[in-house]
Nucleic acid binder design. Structure first.
Ligand code: NAD
Ligand code: NAD
Lengths: 213, 213
DNA sequence: CCGGTCTCGGTACCCGGTTATCGATTCTAC
DNA sequence: GTAGAATCGATAACCGGGTACCGAGACCGG
């Protein structure tokens, strides 16, 4: 599955949550389509691929969509995850509620700074990074989020792989070198900002040329 | 231009910076290709679209690539930008060095909390959000980053649009409603985490079925 | 100097994502 | 009950990004 498609599914889910909170029980393909900038046709094909059936003149049942899309993304499972690096970024991530939304359960925080070890963030204690391997192994944690300086990330990742971690959400500005089979999802905030820059440049040049429609 | 293509250009740029720091002066299309998981053909077409010429048996001059890709993304320009919401996330963004890499110059910070107003982060003073409009107008700032709670984001965005802001980098978990022509680039960290969840589920099911190759 | 090899530039083709279209089904209105 | 509108499901057509391929230029070794 391509990234665009995956992103569409995620956006459907985000939108469904909103619709449900408004009391809606069903939704049509065209409604989902306009929010995504695609046609109803595309939406119907997306849902069809998940074996989701709708009813003519009624649409799709929101509850069905939520369950099926969620299970495809495997975000119902509460996979335990650890976060290493309780700086500004780490703290913001801990305090956000994205973990449960994406099927993770944030169960452990680690840092190397004595000033933060022993404190708690969002009720989760910050442990000494020196004790990391043991805790990870004992708890069977297979996912980790890295929010620490680029020059520390590779060494920490190596230790975590040894302890059994098989998937990383990496914020450090470095390409991690990991064994085959280990997943690294890099979160490069730079890219969002560069994309914004490009869109600004494009809009400005389009307006300078004058709208063509 | 599609998002995938844009992302490829950005990755070329990131990689070029690294190569240059290693003392390299030229790079071949195949070298750039393997890092991106595409063929040399695709890279040559990408570069050809930017009117970048290489030399047979030598490759492309890294300096040329950097300048042309950078200018396409318009990241040489140092556009002034303001950041609103100096919480954990805002602080992490201020302290990162992504702004200059993406063609922006972070010139102003705003918050509503008296406890942080008057302090400074990375040498930039935090101003009272009440004085936001005036400063934005006087400085001619047209870009803003929103790192504040979802229920405050729309009101702040409205005020900023009135003051002249025409592009947003939005971290609040809400779909901003803005006039036509105003750009909103949403940074949804949830998506990265959901993508990780999906990749984990896919790997696990693939392994269960056994490698097919 | 010359064949061999490497890599670029351009072209043709392919594939899959997207849209368009049409028949089938269900609900509403009278 | 029937006409009409709305919406789904399926299929076909379209389009553009990606790949394969080939000829041309550049460097190397002998
Ligand atoms: N584009 C992006 O993805 C992006 C954006 C912002 C920041 N970042 C990066 O995220 C990282 C964290 O940012 P931040 O503002 O929170 O930085 P920070 O300095 O505030 O936090 C880093 C934390 O990591 C801890 N740490 C250092 N070495 C460690 C180790 N070996 N084991 C465990 N913990 C260790 C430190 O004690 C500190 O608490 C930085 O590398 C920054 O460059 C990336
Ligand atoms: N997926 C994501 O994109 C993602 C991830 C993490 C956090 N977030 C969001 O980012 C936002 C900030 O996160 P955080 O951890 O820094 O929160 P935070 O509470 O630490 O910081 C919010 C800051 O905004 C300030 N603020 C509130 N109202 C304001 C106003 N009207 N004008 C100016 N400033 C105002 C507060 O004083 C505070 O300093 C939150 O909304 C959070 O949900 C999003």
């Amino acid at each position: 599955m391509h990234r665009e498609t995956l992103q569409r599914y995620m956006n459907y889910l985000l939108l469904l949550t909103k619709l449900k909170s408004e009391g809606r029980a069903t939704v049509t393909s065209d409604e989902l389509a306009v929010r995504e900038g695609v046609t109803g046709s595309r939406v119907r094909q997306d849902l069809s691929a998940l074996r989701i059936l709708g009813k003519p003149r009624q649409g799709y049942r929101i509850a069905d969509l939520e369950i099926l899309i969620s299970s495809m993304l495997d975000i119902l499972s509460a996979k335990p995850v650890a976060l290493v690096g309780i700086g500004n970024l780490g703290r913001a991530l801990v305090l956000s509620d994205i973990w449960s939304h994406a099927g993770f359960d944030l169960v452990a925080l680690f840092d190397a700074d004595p000033a933060v070890i022993g404190t708690a963030v969002a009720g989760i204690p910050v442990r000494d990074a020196a004790t990391m391997e043991r805790f990870i192994q004992e708890q069977g944690i297979e996912s980790a989020c890295l929010a620490l300086p680029a020059d520390k990330a590779q060494a920490v990742a190596d230790r975590l792989v040894n302890a059994g971690v098989r998937a990383f959400w990496n914020f450090a500005l470095i390409d991690l070198d990991v064994p085959a089979g280990i997943i690294v999802e890099n979160q490069r905030l730079e890219q969002g900002l560069m994309a914004l820059s490009f869109r600004i440049a494009k809009r400005n040049s389009d307006q300078a040329r004058g709208p063509q429609d």
